[in-house]
């Protein structure tokens, strides 16, 4: 398979994943109705793919998927997508660093990004005189999402076979040659 069609295949996979996860959050009770705030799994997957292969997760897919989810979820449309787009560009620009350093660095960086995204989102809601949630719930939401993140990384790695560059194909399929030369 050529590199080009492979990238598009993975982009398709990424879009399907985001849509599936956003739809799954809306499954009627009782499967997913827990009385606690849910983790933002969509954000986790976006960050995990961006940290691994930013070329598989272009900004337009991220924005479209989150905007659609926002429309469905009766949130103020556009705001969360704008915040996530900004944050995702920061994560994208760091992906070389994620490759060089340990997972702990990636995890803490993305946690900090998510926390600042949620807090700035709430701040803008407040400035627009829209109802916000209590700080306790917000912090809980952030904590749950941070804890879920490594799980989504595992899924990204071992279910979707999306690895960081230089680690991937050569490690799994030695016949293909180094992926670093390809990229």
């Amino acid at each position: 398979m050529s590199t080009y069609s492979k990238i598009w295949l993975y982009r398709l996979l990424f879009s399907a994943l985001l849509l599936l996860v956003s739809a799954m959050v809306m499954v009627p009770a009782p499967v997913f109705s827990l009385p606690v705030p849910r983790a933002d799994i969509v954000f986790c997957f976006v960050a995990a793919w961006l940290a691994r292969r930013p070329d598989y997760a272009p900004a337009w897919i991220i924005v479209t998927a989150i905007l659609l989810a926002e429309f469905l979820a009766a949130q103020a449309p556009g705001l969360w997508s704008a915040v996530v787009l900004g944050v995702s560009e920061i994560i994208r620009s760091r992906h070389e660093k994620f490759r060089q350093r340990s997972f702990l660095y990636e995890w803490s960086f993305i946690s900090a990004m998510f926390a600042s995204a949620v807090l700035s989102y709430q701040l803008i809601l407040m400035l627009a005189f829209l109802p916000t949630t209590s700080l306790r719930l917000i912090l809980f939401h952030i904590a749950v999402t941070i804890l879920i993140y490594p799980l989504t990384v595992l899924v990204t790695n071992y279910l979707f076979r999306v690895f960081k560059r230089g680690f991937d194909e050569q490690f799994l399929f030695p016949g293909l040659g180094s992926a670093r030369k390809e990229g």
Binding site: M26, R38, A73
Partner: peptide
């Protein structure tokens, strides 16, 4: 019939 449950901590 209830089709979807759109819950978050906000709504």
């Amino acid at each position: 019939t209830v089709l979807a449950d759109i819950n978050s901590q906000f709504q």
